[in-house]
């Protein structure tokens, strides 16, 4: 399976809604996810379409699935999203635009280029 990056995975509103619903209730079957999309969001997608969205989310590491006996359950794993705050930390925007910030930013850019 092609590995999908997190930005592409969360660029789609249906996939963000799936993550919302998995936050609400973890460990859902495909059936429950479909029912929630239909009943809570008016998204009447086919099971196949939802299945493909789940594959994309799994490929990005944002959803994990687990076989338990004869059933398959899906869970959210938001760990890959840490990359976003690590890359654009909140304290960078909070600190005042003084000389130290400029220096810090300049050094980060240098690191990325190397």
């Amino acid at each position: 399976m092609k590995v999908v990056d997190i930005y592409r995975a969360i660029a789609d509103s249906t996939r963000r809604t799936i993550l919302d619903e998995l936050c609400e209730q973890n460990d859902q079957t495909l059936f429950e996810i479909c029912a929630r999309l239909t009943n809570n969001h008016g998204l009447g997608l086919s099971r196949q379409a939802v299945s493909q969205h789940l594959e994309t989310l799994e490929s990005a590491g944002l959803v994990k699935s687990r076989k338990e006996g004869r059933f398959k359950f899906h869970q959210i794993d938001s760990t890959p999203l840490d990359e976003i705050t690590a890359r654009w930390p909140a304290d960078a925007s909070r600190s005042s635009p003084d000389a130290s910030r400029t220096t810090k930013r300049a050094s980060t850019e240098t690191e990325e280029q190397s």
């Binding site: 209730q25 859902q28 079957t29 059936f31 429950e32 029912a35 929630r36 239909t38 009943n39 809570n40 059933f71 359950f73």
Partner: peptide
């Protein structure tokens, strides 16, 4: 149960084995 009681719009459902 594979799905605990869940209210979705006007209905509440649960799924059992």
């Amino acid at each position: 149960f594979t799905q605990e009681p869940t209210t979705m719009g006007p209905i509440t459902t649960a799924v059992l084995d």
